[in-house]
Design a binder for these strands. Structure first.
Lengths: 143, 143
DNA sequence: TATCCTCTTGAGACGGCTTATCAATTTCAA
DNA sequence: TTGAAATTGATAAGCCGTCTCAAGAGGATA
């Protein structure tokens, strides 16, 4: 079973549970979405314009938000725009963000993830996803 | 020397260095800002409406952004709004958020914070602030 | 302290991003 | 195949934050 199919099943499951329907547009957007780690609605709009010139921007926003509800995507506000992160990659990508120049460095740290699990367990939670963003100045912006 | 005075001096210093002026509004907003850990422009607008009904929202935005330039505050996008964090505030907490019922549990974990510093240093960053949110199901919502 | 140049303010216009509206279309269970 | 219900595309509307500009305030200088 490919990764794409796994996500598609998650979507199908969510749709069934909520009396929603699987449409051509939702399949198209999911397929495109799974090819990236994160993307904005606007960027996807341009990316898909070739494949379906009539696909509306509103539909993309609606669909990406649907993916968030289904647990496939996660919205992250950065600057004035919303980034939609692919959660299946997300588990291992946190962000260091320079408040000076906006540079984003991705990192992963198993030890931090382990401690997160520990905190969650201590509070009776089971983690589905998380968001960790460190804001500061990169070496260049400090001078 | 009180904490308020220390921040006020930082502001004065920044103003002097950039040929800016210390106004009644800037003093008022700084005093209010230092009383909180983080606040939105809109919230501060309502908070200060009693003290100065003519204080404009644009002035609050401009002033909070000025504080960011001066290194007193830090802007962080949260939801659709911008949160202005008080950088000198140390008692920072992170959040465990239940995706089932919306319950939010605050926690702090020194070990995680230490590891964050480590990651930042390794990448040449100096952290100003951070945000850590763990999303999952609480014990009640799992059943 | 009075003067004067410059910076700041307040009010509202403006612009970018996202969501709401609604008639036409599509999905899918029966 | 049919029909109720969900979805779509186009665009209007809404929200948040910034810009504009005339009126007002700060503060260096004498």
């Amino acid at each position: 079973m490919t990764k794409t199919m796994k996500e598609m099943d998650v979507l199908r499951d969510h749709l069934a549970k909520h009396q929603l329907k699987l449409t051509r547009q939702r399949e198209l957007i999911l397929t495109a979405f799974l090819r990236q780690e994160h993307i904005t609605a606007e960027a996807m709009y341009h990316q898909l314009a070739k494949k379906d010139p009539h696909l509306g921007l509103a539909t993309i926003y609606r669909t990406l938000n649907l993916f968030c509800d289904a647990g496939i995507a996660q919205a992250r506000h950065f600057g004035t725009q919303t980034q939609y992160d692919n959660i299946s990659h997300k588990g291992h990508h946190d962000h260091l963000i320079c408040t000076g120049c906006g540079t984003i460095v991705e990192f992963e740290n198993c030890e931090i993830e382990r401690l997160q699990e520990e905190v969650a367990t201590k509070n009776g939670f089971v983690i589905q996803t998380h968001r960790l963003e460190l804001y500061g100045l990169c070496s260049r912006c400090r001078h």
